[in-house]
C-alpha cells in the first residue's frame, strides 16, 4: 500500500482539455454585443421561466462566434447565460450532430452519403472533396485548416441529389466538376450562391 501511495504522489495528473472545468469568465470568454442582442430576442419566443428552450439556438450562436466549434468554455458560457447547470448544456451539445466538439475548418463540408445521394453518385463527390482538399479520412481537417470533411446523414434534399452542406448553406445537384468549382471558389475566398439564396434570419437562429 505504501508503495502505491508514494507512486501516486510522484505522478502528476495531466489535464487533457486545457480549459476543462474553468468557468467561461475565468478565460475571459463573452458573447459580443450583437450576439447578446440576438439572445435577448430569442428568449422572447419562450415563456419567461423556460429559458432552457433557448439552449440549441444559443449554442449555435456560440459555435458561430467562437470559431465554428464548442469548447468547454463556450458551453460553460452558454450555461451561465441561460442560468442552467453545465451538464444540461453539455448533454445537448453532445447529443446533436451539428455541434462540433473539436475544431473544424473554415468551411465544413458535409457530404450526404445516404440512400438517394448514394444512388446518384455521392461517392464521386466525397472523392472530389478528398482530392481537392488532401483530406484522406472522414472527419479530418485539411492541412491549411480551410476545410473539414464530414459524411453526414440525409439532409433532406433528396430530389436534388447528390448534395452537400457547407457551413449553413446547401449546394445541390452536384457532380464532380461542380463540386470542384465550388471548392475552388471557396478557397479563393469567394462567395458561392447556395441552392436557396436568401437573407439570413435576423436572430441568427
Amino acid at each position: 500500500m505504501t508503495t502505491a501511495k508514494s507512486k501516486a504522489t510522484k505522478t502528476k495528473v495531466k489535464i487533457v482539455s486545457p480549459d476543462l472545468g474553468h468557468h467561461a469568465t475565468d478565460v475571459g470568454l463573452e458573447f459580443s454585443k450583437e450576439t447578446e442582442a440576438k439572445i435577448k430576442r430569442i428568449l422572447k419566443r419562450y415563456p419567461e421561466d423556460k429559458a432552457q428552450s433557448a439552449v440549441i439556438p444559443v449554442l449555435r450562436l456560440a459555435q458561430d462566434e467562437f470559431g465554428g466549434w464548442l469548447s468547454t468554455s463556450a458551453m460553460q458560457l452558454t450555461a451561465e447565460r441561460l442560468g442552467l447547470p453545465y451538464i444540461r448544456v453539455y448533454e445537448v451539445a453532445t447529443f446533436y450532430t451539428m455541434f462540433n466538439l473539436k475544431p473544424v475548418g473554415k468551411y465544413h463540408l458535409q457530404v450526404c452519403t445516404n440512400c438517394s445521394c448514394m444512388i446518384r453518385g455521392s461517392d464521386k463527390i466525397v472523392e472530389a472533396v478528398k482530392d481537392f482538399t488532401g483530406i484522406s479520412k472522414n472527419g479530418e481537417m485539411s492541412d491549411d485548416s480551410l476545410f473539414t470533411l464530414t459524411e453526414v446523414e440525409c439532409l433532406g434534399a433528396c430530389v436534388e441529389a447528390p448534395m452537400m452542406q457547407v457551413n449553413n448553406g446547401y449546394y445541390t445537384k452536384l457532380d464532380k466538376e461542380k463540386t470542384l468549382q465550388i471548392l475552388d471558389a471557396l478557397k479563393k475566398g469567394e462567395e458561392v450562391e447556395t441552392a436557396t439564396p436568401t437573407t439570413p434570419m435576423k436572430d441568427g437562429y
Binding site: R45, R60, R88, E91, Y96, T97, Y205
Partner: peptide, 25 residues
C-alpha cells in the same frame, strides 16, 4: 415562433421533438 434544431433524426418523433423544444436531448 420558429425554432431550429441541431441535427437529430429522432426529433421528428413528436415527443422527442417536444423534449428538444424544451432544450433537452
Amino acid at each position: 415562433h420558429l425554432h431550429l434544431g441541431a441535427g437529430a433524426y429522432i426529433c421528428g418523433e413528436e415527443t422527442a421533438l417536444l423534449e428538444s423544444l424544451e432544450g433537452k436531448k
